[in-house]
Write a protein that binds this DNA or RNA. Structure first.
Lengths: 254, 254
DNA sequence: ATAATAGTGTCTCTGAGACAATATGAG
DNA sequence: CTCATATTGTCTCAGAGACACTATTAT
């Protein structure tokens, strides 16, 4: 506490007992189809949870997180906790809400700051062992929402899900779940994995041949300027694309 | 502090010195033109500031706000502070960010939760006297951004402004600055007041004759079902509209 | 050939954009 | 009549939506 010429002192007031950051870590898990032929994988949205080993909510699953320290912002805290608890670094992480309902934490007056992180499954592969540890696991969001999570973490997860669904359709965060270069079928599948009822029969044509939209992606090309294609998922090669730096400006009035 | 069977105690850790809510209160001030003829008013976006009378930043202007108490959420705190400091109640108020940079507040480790409120100028008229008090005043946002505000309040204001500009184009919050029933010219003007470079020559036609957009507004009708019109701003009467309950779903992919 | 994915052709109809023209009614 | 605002007419062209069709290539 800084002391000074004024008579102000936080000690005169009841102060919070902590300001943690909790992180909702989403990833998409792809499973190759057991078919002889090439086929698109099935994809499922997963969320990472940790099993608590101390009071309160001992034994229950919870969102990763921890208390903010005096010398860091809550954003830095979220990044640090993510690294400490799951060894994940350098991913998209953003703040989305605060949770402060009195009594939400039996340890006292604790105001929690909720972040969401989008992690490419390729990044998780590096450290599959740690994720497989008994106290850190991926669950499908449906599973997680059916579980009896610690604190108000079910509410936080549910809010995060709503947020990511909205962002998936209004921004280019889908990029976080895709490799640098991807086919439009992959992109379509990723969107559908997060937003279940998204359907757009002319998806490919719309993205490639509509001027207003075609600015968000560009064709991938090799060093000779020739278009790059992928045969990973199909017999016929598919054009690879990458996201540009453009972020679309949406408006209900224009 | 709740004590219990565990060995947990917040007293073992350094805890924050406070978790205030700060509120960016926006309103649009209309000024009638000094013309003989009827004419649309000029509108300007204003923000409400209070002049601090205690350390720290004594004498400087700041956003209204105050410390959250143990028995309330930060959202409830924002509403309470709004009411206590400016007598404003029952307005649109939403949370938008947290500010926690170490050293941002000389009183100690203080994590601030920033809200923005949109207030119809009609509501302010009721209590013009209080607003005219020397320590509570409206400034245009341009003025406010040029001032040396207390704490990191210039940053907060600037973030709030960015947020409201985005929301003005993607949601129907314009309703907060308008009466129940309004003409489309008024709506257009309100949007332009907040988003300076918004221009849409066919604005009226687009809103009324495009199926996808016309769901957000409906024609106002009197008790006999006849369309209601306004002659307040023009010689020729203009149709009055009201917002429906529809919130538009925007997408970059469809 | 078959299967699975990737794309094109073609049609209709809505609506965006531009800009001129007309409507209203107080001063 | 004039002026400020409100609204309609009319044209062209982009693109949404539907759905059938063709392309590619491992097996």
């Amino acid at each position: 506490m800084v002391e000074n010429e004024s008579n102000y002192s936080a000690a005169n007031y009841r102060t919070p007992d902590g300001a943690p950051a909790d992180i909702v870590i989403f990833t998409i898990v792809s499973t190759e189809k057991q078919s002889a032929k090439k086929a698109l994988p099935t994809r499922e949205l997963h969320v990472m949870l940790i099993q608590r080993n101390i009071w309160p909510f001992e034994g229950q699953w919870a969102l990763p997180g921890g208390f903010t320290q005096e010398n860091e912002t809550v954003y830095e805290c979220a990044k640090r906790e993510l690294q400490e608890e799951t060894s994940i670094e350098d991913v998209h992480i953003e703040y989305f809400n605060v949770y402060s309902t009195p009594g939400r934490d039996p340890r006292g007056w604790i105001i929690s700051h909720a972040f969401l992180a989008l992690v490419n499954e390729k990044l998780l592969a590096h450290r599959a062992a740690a994720v497989d540890a008994s106290d850190v696991r991926l669950f499908t969001v449906e599973e997680a929402l059916r579980m009896d999570l610690a604190f108000d973490h079910k509410q936080i997860l549910s809010d995060a899900l709503e947020g990511i669904r909205k962002k998936m359709l209004t921004t280019t965060i889908a990029r976080e779940f895709l490799p640098e270069e991807f086919t439009l079928s992959e992109l379509y599948q990723v969107i559908q994995t997060v937003v279940q009822d998204f359907e757009e029969p002319n998806f490919i044509r719309k993205l490639t041949s509509t001027k207003s939209r075609s600015t968000i992606i560009e064709e991938a090309a090799d060093e000779n300027g020739l278009p790059k294609q992928s045969k990973q998922y199909s017999q016929r090669a598919a054009q690879l694309y990458r996201f540009t730096k453009e972020e679309p400006q949406l408006s209900i009035y224009s």
